[in-house]
Amino acid sequence: MSADFLQFLFSGITVGATYALVGLGFSIIYNASHVINFAQGEFVMLGGMATVFFYGAGLPMPLAMAMAVAMTIFIGMALEKFAVEPAKGASIVTLIIITIGASIFLRGLAEVLWGRNFHSLPPISGSDPINIGGALVLPQSLWVVGGTIVIVITLAWFFNRTMTGKAMVASASNPLAARLVGINLKFILLLSFALSAMLGSIAGILIAPISLAYPGVGIMLGLKGFCAAILGGMGNPMGAVLAGLIVGISEALTAGYISSAYKDAVAFIIILAVLFLRPNGLFSTGGTERV
């Protein structure tokens, strides 16, 4: 493999890992509520921005990060409590508009709180690139990829091995039956927003030293993450992770070998191609409409 190819691949994996985390957030909320949360990208933005400002206010870095995650989780729960829960039973389009309203609101909030400039966050372990087979990779990229792996494994454990996680899976596949066995659906819903906000903010913190933090940073990441979630088959968390990586790597390879002008279109072209061939996503087994 040539060094150039490796370079493109690492770039793609790093970016793809962020798409994966955002896509994962979409999937978790979708599973619990059948809501597409268009404010998912704003969780990423909040994680990065809040860390920058807590750190700037003099808090030590680990505490600043923890505070930022806590704050984003709180905002995620507030979003569920005050915007999504009251709209229970509304149509898909209505819910889409509510979450888009929320994303505009959160961007507005960040602008008022922290201004509109872009800011950087120091990388966790320096900025001297590491040579891997001729490709030069930033340590922060390894943090992003490593962080994503840890999160994915933890989540897999959570959904398969813990009572609460199993309850979340159960209520996603059959809400009525879940309620009958005593699962508190309201709590599951709240938890799903908290979890997604946490994922988003961690992604935001990990990526901030690479992408910088500014109020609009979440817009494109949110859209690409949505691509990943759909491509992976909505509500299929591991599918979203895989699809996020596929999108990221395809983009990097397109930019490197074909045309960098149409790089941003790649994700959407893949999506359309896949949807036309497999209308329920790449990793889905298909479903039926209830009459």
Partner: peptide, 20 residues
């Protein structure tokens, strides 16, 4: 002559290509 998209977070593919 390379370009990158709006809101891109990593331009290493383009720069690698230019460098080469």
């Amino acid at each position: 002559d390379e370009t990158h998209g709006k809101g891109d977070t990593d331009m290493t593919p383009q720069i690698t290509k230019i460098k080469g």
